[in-house]
């Protein structure tokens, strides 16, 4: 299923990025937009060096990654089992589905006042918001995946005496694992988007706070520098999660 590649194919995306940077630089150079509205690539690069040397950037990266990881792990540990359980219990599922959907469509940012009220400042409110942002999509997609397991697997499982916990761990879970991995990638994406907003309030560090702080100091070059870092880190983390799709016992789910 791979796109036909040649040895130059890695150069294509790099060329696109180069063109974009050149266009950006040209706009700044010709002063089509006033300097205070759009920092030039060189300013951004300079501020990147500055932030890196002061250690602030690294500190913010670690703070954000830590919050996202903890929030994400908590919601995966609670959300996936909940989804597995609900997927097998039609009545409970029917009872809980509307409320789950309600919270899914409620932006986690709406919880900010409560997050601060309940958890003060620091890591906790941000982790709480990340949990809210990822828990419901994870439950719902795991649940849907379980409900769509072909019946034939359960018939086979019955023939070979799989029951109870063993049925759950050896049949149900592996049968939905490919979809769970996809759901994790999607909700990780949501988490990474939400962290920036979550850190703009109630935090004293983190990538989101960095942007907020730069804006307050009218340092748009620093803000852009943080934006670039956020984008790249998001892509890297997704690349990491996508390695799970290469596990031998999940490959079947992606090769159809």
């Amino acid at each position: 299923m791979s796109i036909k590649t040649n040895k130059f194919s890695i150069l294509y995306p790099i060329a696109v990025i180069a063109v974009l940077v050149i266009v950006w630089w040209t706009i700044c150079f010709l002063q089509l937009v006033p300097k205070y509205q759009l920092p030039s690539p060189f300013d951004v690069l300079k501020s990147f060096k500055e932030e890196l040397l002061s250690g602030r950037l690294i500190n913010d990266i670690i703070a954000s990654l830590w919050r996202v990881t903890i929030g994400f792990i908590i919601s995966a540990c609670l959300g996936i089992p909940t989804g597995l359980w609900l997927g097998q219990h039609a009545a409970t599922k029917k009872a809980l589905l509307p409320i789950l959907n309600f919270f899914r469509f409620l932006s986690p940012l709406a919880w900010i006042p409560f997050a601060i009220l309940w958890f003060n400042v620091g890591d906790k409110p941000a982790i709480f918001l990340l949990f809210l942002a990822t828990f419901f999509p994870l439950v719902l997609s795991t649940m849907a995946a379980v409900a769509n397991i072909p019946k034939i697997y359960f018939n086979v499982a019955k023939d070979y005496n799989y029951k109870g916990t063993e049925l759950l761990t050896k049949v149900t879970f592996p049968a939905v694992l490919p979809q769970i991995i996809t759901a994790m990638r999607v909700s990780y994406g949501i988490a990474w988007v939400v962290i920036v907003a979550a850190e703009m309030v109630g935090c004293q560090d983190g990538l989101g706070y960095g942007i907020w702080d730069a804006r307050n100091g009218l340092r748009l070059d620093t803000a852009v520098c943080y934006m670039v870092v956020i984008g790249i880190l998001g892509m890297l983390m997704d690349k990491l999660l996508s390695q799970l799709t290469k596990l031998p016992n999940t490959r079947w789910g992606y090769e159809r």
Binding site: N155, V156, D159, V171, P174, P248, N249
Partner: peptide, 16 residues
Amino acid sequence: IIRTVYQQDGLFPWLT
């Protein structure tokens, strides 16, 4: 002990 052989897709795809 009764076992069924299906037309297709009876094997568990996540197992070797």
